[in-house]
Amino acid sequence: MELSLLVSCIETGAFYGLVGLGYFLFLRATGVVNFAMGAYVMFAGVAYASFSENPTTSLGLAIICAVSAAVLFAWITEDGILRPMALRVHDEFGAVMAIVALMFVIEQLASLAFGARPLLGRELIEGTAVIGGLAIDFQDLLAVAVTMAIFAVVAIWLKHGRYGRMLRAVGDNEHAARSLGLPVRRVRLVAVLVTGLICGVAGLLAAPQAALSFQSHLSFAILGFIALVLGGVGTPWAPLVGGMLVSAIESASARYIGGFARDYVLLALALTVFSLRPEGLFTIRVRA
């Protein structure tokens, strides 16, 4: 694989990994696969692109609005949908369908608020570095660096942070955690808000790199989910590994087969993973 393609693959894989990390944290906190993750990322990205298109708008304000929107939607998902449903009836399928409905509501809100044409956001950092004869935008370097930093912070938080350690307990067995007196509701809420924050950052990092529209969320949701499935849930770094693998396969198929093959190859990959190793590459080890 050429160096330029490898660089491109890392940039894209980092993005998929971030979305996969959002799925990972939400799943650990609530036990539910949140397919609205892509919609949080899309809304944040489109909001940032829309605000930053106007050269007089402050970048700081655009960033705050974008990330806040994603955090708000994540909060609505937990406190507005999942918790009320859990109090009335234990129905996982119902919860997933409610989240899918929210996904489409966010899609339409984005269309109403920002229009339907694809938008490209302003770069957070301009300029290009030439490394080994290859030009790499500083924006792309920033995106990868921020992604690595987020993964590192989340890994440290889960291992050593107060709420991170409680999240591990809640995620493993919520009833036991509640019996032990852990503040389950607060732990879940913190994890969900962190998920929203991660999705918001993913959106605003993606906006300067690819034109986003209200329809972009579906591909984010699917690719982020495949990254999670491929990587597994054994470690917070697993979605990053999964994201890199998805991106590598995507790039390789476009390079060696053709751009048209991308969707077919990814679908075949997902089916293969579900059939042969549905638990993913990294699994949770349970002591005997």
């Binding site: 050429e2 393609l5 993005f15 034109a211 591909s219 790039s251 476009a254 390079r255 751009g259």
Partner: peptide, 17 residues
Amino acid sequence: DEQVEAGARDTNAQLLR
């Protein structure tokens, strides 16, 4: 004869082909 999908982040693969 290369095709670029909607929302593509770059066209490196197509250009290398």
